[in-house]
Write a protein that binds this DNA or RNA. Sequence first.
DNA 1: AAATCATTTAAGCAATTGCTTAAATATAAT
DNA 2: ATTATATTTAAGCAATTGCTTAAATGATTT
Lengths: 130, 130
Amino acid sequence: MIYYLWFMEEENNCIRKEADLNQIKRCRQQIFEAEEVVSTLTDKLSLVSNTTRLKILYVLQAEERLCVCDLSDILNMTIPAVSQHLRKLKDRDFVKAEKEGQTIFYSLRDDHRELLAPFFNLLNHQPETI
Amino acid sequence: MIYYLWFMEEENNCIRKEADLNQIKRCRQQIFEAEEVVSTLTDKLSLVSNTTRLKILYVLQAEERLCVCDLSDILNMTIPAVSQHLRKLKDRDFVKAEKEGQTIFYSLRDDHRELLAPFFNLLNHQPETI
DNA sequence: AAATCATTTAAGCAATTGCTTAAATATAAT
DNA sequence: ATTATATTTAAGCAATTGCTTAAATGATTT
């Protein structure tokens, strides 16, 4: 497997006299190494950065489990709208679904508790500033 | 100032026999109280959940300051593209700009260090799983 | 003063998002 | 079997996002 290390080779375009070429290379390498974690992280954050989905996660944290119909009531939203959000959360392993008769109960998975913890903390303690 | 407490009054639409009306009211109130924090938080997270902007924040954390031209080189992106991201980050107080001649240096502000800390930790330690 | 450099701003556009309504699925009750 | 219930899926659409290119701004050098 051959990796092309563009951050080492590529010509610099920043033509400032004072430009620190070593700094630029260092930053390129830093980003190159973090690339995958950046993708994984932003993928998850873009899920959480939606008010409806954050609210869903927040109430699920407190309530153990809720069905689509409950959430539709709680959020004052259409059932399909809620369902579509839940699907995204399920696809990314934020929640799990358990069928009981014709009702499907959703609950928080443990997978992302660490990522979510600071957000739940903020929401629970309602500080003046974030 | 009169607040209409819809979460107390409003009719329930979830018609399941087993629906726990108290649970639904409790959740509504919980969300009602967190509403503002939810907005503020998702507003910030939606900034961070973009790979380019997270990378900018990440390298700025390590490098103290970088100019638009540097970042354009580092990220292998057009100058206007970077500039537009920086504007968003500046508008939300994630970064500050300092002019020095015709060069504008951007650096991290302290305002959101607490929010960003866990993300920087992940990026620095490159764990197998997030 | 004119040209160069660093950056921003603006207009345009393709891709994505998040809703809506309507139809499909699947389980339960009559 | 038929109807009702709970949910999902799909199609359509307006709003937002993030880029591109071109033009504008403002400081520096010649």
